[in-house]
Design a protein around this nucleic acid. Structure first.
Lengths: 146, 146
DNA sequence: CTTTGTGCAAACGATTTGCAGGATG
DNA sequence: CATCCTGCAAATCGTTTGCACAAAG
């Protein structure tokens, strides 16, 4: 029994990649599986460090390439909430983000946490298609640490 | 009569800078005045190009320094909506952003365009202090150009 | 076996930094 | 006139690219 993924989960990830027309390489698999297993939207550096923590799995350039490939087929997306920091997220369903102003951590907020906004009244000249809310404040951990 | 700013507007900007404890230099003034006069959240490059369009006003390094100084006293803020692109905004009042997925242009959306969201129901463990909405779609120009 | 991915190192672009001379209050 | 700002060039950081070899289907 592996620590983070059962065989059926692994197989599911392989099928997802194949279904999108991506070749399944150990590196690509590792990047996607890691992103799927976490909800903290890591940076490339964090991802790379964790992948290679035990044994070398992927080079930096390949992580970049993998993320680009995954992004192009819509399995992964970028999260931009902070200057100079690009984070990646395997949750491509619409959702909101909470960012702690102290520890800079990020938490997903369920899409239905809010009553849907009415985009039709925005402006007759704009075609609004999608929206997301970015919330800032203090997270549970930083609140209790005061 | 100048094109973009009357003398009283210029004086107001000088007073704003002084009020925040910033020395008023031609470069700093130019950066802030330019940002105040536009609503399109330019990048450093755009800002620099426009400032020096007629006569040399500021170096690149100084624009960066000016923006940093202005940001620290809360007269200017960053807008991050696109990978690798940092934009600057002299409108520090809370407001939302619309981003056109075609021309990549950005429009401000008034704060009261939406009924206020209820942040209290988010989670008992988070202290949500602020939020902003990011909307995407097609802007008026791109809609009519189809 | 053909196509695509990987890893390395060099290249790149945006931002930061060190420092000497110049302007501000 | 003490302090802070400016401009230049070099340094830095994240990301991309060129290319030879390796792996996937």
């Amino acid at each position: 029994m592996t620590r983070h993924t059962t065989n059926s989960q692994a197989e599911k990830i392989v099928q997802t990649l194949k279904g999108k027309g991506l070749r399944v390489t150990p590196q690509r698999y590792a990047v996607y599986a890691n992103l799927m297993a976490r909800t903290d939207h890591p940076t490339v550096d964090q991802l790379l460090t964790e992948l290679n923590a035990n044994s070398p799995v992927s080079s930096q350039a390949t992580v970049y390439a993998s993320l680009q490939a995954l992004q192009q087929v819509g399995l992964v997306r970028e999260v931009l909430l902070e200057e100079g920091v690009t984070r990646y997220d395997a949750n491509v369903m619409p959702h909101h983000h909470f960012r702690c102003r102290q520890c800079r951590g990020i938490k997903d907020i369920a899409w239905d946490a809010f009553t849907p906004l009415d985009l039709t009244t925005l402006s007759p000249n704009l075609m609004a298609e999608h929206y997301e809310v970015t919330i800032s404040g203090l997270c549970d951990r930083c609140l209790s640490e005061d």
